[in-house]
Amino acid sequence: MDRVGRLEQLSARYGLLALGWFGLAGTVAQLVLDRHWSSPTQAPPWLALAALAGALTVVGRAQGSRRLARWLAGVAVAIALAGVYFHIEGNYQAGPLDQRFSATWEGMSVASRLWTAASQGVGPSPVLASGALIMIALVVGMESLRQRD
């Protein structure tokens, strides 16, 4: 392999890993700013971040286990998808508590309530925030695939 090719390989490897770690750090910072530890139900994203940190560490090693990294990333994706669901569900349950909807919530159709909750028209939970975990997991997956090539 010539020098340019080796340089491309290194930048792809470290670029992907840097992207993963940067996303991880940003997500941790956001959770800290949100004080995402007020209740036990707010613990899962921290577990997902720990899994992703493990996955990035494993996949970053020359002799790392790609399978273990993928498993850890898969756990993080599952938690992230559950997070999207629970954020929508939390917003949905908050509908009658919001003074703008307390009088009308019961009369709204289920579809309308779901859309209002999913679009964060009501409730405190950012619906797609846990998607950041999926993005980091995809980086782990891409890096593990790149190592196979």
Binding site: S38, A94, L97, D98, Q99, R100, S102, V122, G123, P124
Partner: peptide, 14 residues
């Protein structure tokens, strides 16, 4: 303060 901060996120009536 903790409870007030958390409940305020739900936009309750005054």
């Amino acid at each position: 303060t903790k409870l007030r901060t958390e409940l305020a996120k739900y936009n309750p009536a005054p």
